[in-house]
Computed example of a mutant assay.
Amino acid sequence: MVLPLVVGVDGSESSLRAVDWATDEAALRDVPLRLVYASLWERYEGAALAEGLGRSSEQVMADDIVEAAARRAHRRAPDVKVTTDVLPDDAVSVLSNEAHTAAALVVGSRGRGGLAELLLGSVSLAIAGRAACPVIVLRGSHDNQARAGRHRRVVLGVGEGPHGTAATRFAFEEAEVRKATLDAVRAWRCPAYESTDHPLLTGEPARLHEQRAVEILESALSTAAAEHPAVDLRRRTAEGSARRVLLDASDEADLLVVGVQRHHGHSGHVGFQLGRVAHTVLHHSACPVAVVPQRG
């Protein structure tokens, strides 16, 4: 079964931009597009009462929103199959459930209720930390226009540990369908306590940390690089914090990909640990950000 790209829509300019971006992505991947709107009117009124009263103004608005979004997607890519749904629940619950049968979720950086000065909407941030599939948050291009890849460049932030495996595969697949360069970046830093003033040892700790970054990069990329030989892969290590290195790289990228690690909460709930790097790029990236969970 071909899984769809799912877009959370709410009528905001940010969500319409997400529809545009996801429509282009669905055309590239040759997958269906599913547009969903979360509505609580039926939960509050009760299904039986709602049927007796006819369609509420909230339901009419919800239907209008998804229908307008579907028309927008069809105009942009007539060959993409589009389905719509209005679901009686809050946005985070709706999108979290949709994630189990989606190739990826696409959301705007903030919804109808968000103030322009807010860095990232609460729904977008919550979904990025909960969804069981990749989540693409539409950062950058704040004139609400989703443009085709101008830079032909996908950036992958390479971390440590196995939780980056899914993100690496996702980044290679995105670079391949876009015919874009994949810029795989590993940041490194030399802790201050390892520095020395001894002239014979100057630079040695830094060299060791840089070499370790090179080794991590090679280990993380080797399997996926062999599986995607057509991808133009560029490996790069950079001194500095991962947050700053990735934000700088996002300035000339069409997509920034980072991985997140599964964790178990105190209540037994399974979620994903965004971490400081993911939080930072979600709030400040100059391009769309794909947050990819490690499954299994």
Rank of each mutant, 00 (worst) to 15 (best):
293 P>N: 10
129 G>N: 03
137 V>L: 02
229 P>I: 04
262 R>V: 03
14 S>N: 11
9 V>W: 02
268 G>A: 09
17 R>T: 08
280 T>Q: 11
89 D>N: 15
82 V>E: 02
57 S>W: 09
254 D>N: 08
187 A>W: 07
3 L>T: 08
258 V>L: 02
203 G>M: 06
285 S>A: 15
155 V>H: 09
108 G>S: 04
27 A>V: 05
7 V>R: 07
91 A>W: 00
186 R>I: 00
259 G>F: 01
123 V>D: 04
252 E>H: 14
203 G>K: 06
88 P>F: 05
59 Q>K: 08
186 R>T: 15
230 A>G: 13
235 R>M: 12
284 H>W: 06
141 S>E: 14
54 G>A: 00
162 P>F: 04
99 A>P: 03
234 R>N: 10
197 D>M: 11
127 I>M: 06
17 R>D: 02
291 V>N: 05
104 A>K: 01
192 A>M: 10
244 R>E: 13
72 R>V: 08
206 A>Q: 13
109 S>I: 01
67 E>V: 10
200 L>A: 13
95 L>S: 05
50 A>Q: 06
271 G>T: 11
291 V>D: 03
75 R>E: 14
59 Q>T: 06
167 A>V: 05
11 G>W: 00
282 L>E: 07
74 H>A: 13
291 V>Y: 04
179 K>M: 10
75 R>L: 13
294 Q>A: 14
104 A>H: 05
30 D>E: 15
177 V>F: 11
236 R>V: 15
20 D>L: 09
24 D>L: 09
71 R>W: 05
279 H>M: 12
74 H>K: 15
111 G>H: 02
218 E>N: 12
14 S>V: 01
245 V>G: 03
212 R>N: 13
142 H>L: 13
244 R>S: 14
205 P>N: 03
284 H>C: 04
136 I>Y: 01
98 E>R: 11
83 T>P: 09
171 A>C: 10
295 R>F: 02
71 R>G: 14
202 T>N: 07
247 L>G: 08
148 A>T: 14
101 T>R: 14
213 A>N: 07
107 V>M: 09
228 H>M: 08
186 R>N: 12
32 P>D: 02
115 L>M: 14
229 P>D: 06
197 D>Y: 10
50 A>P: 03
249 A>T: 03
290 A>V: 11
32 P>K: 02
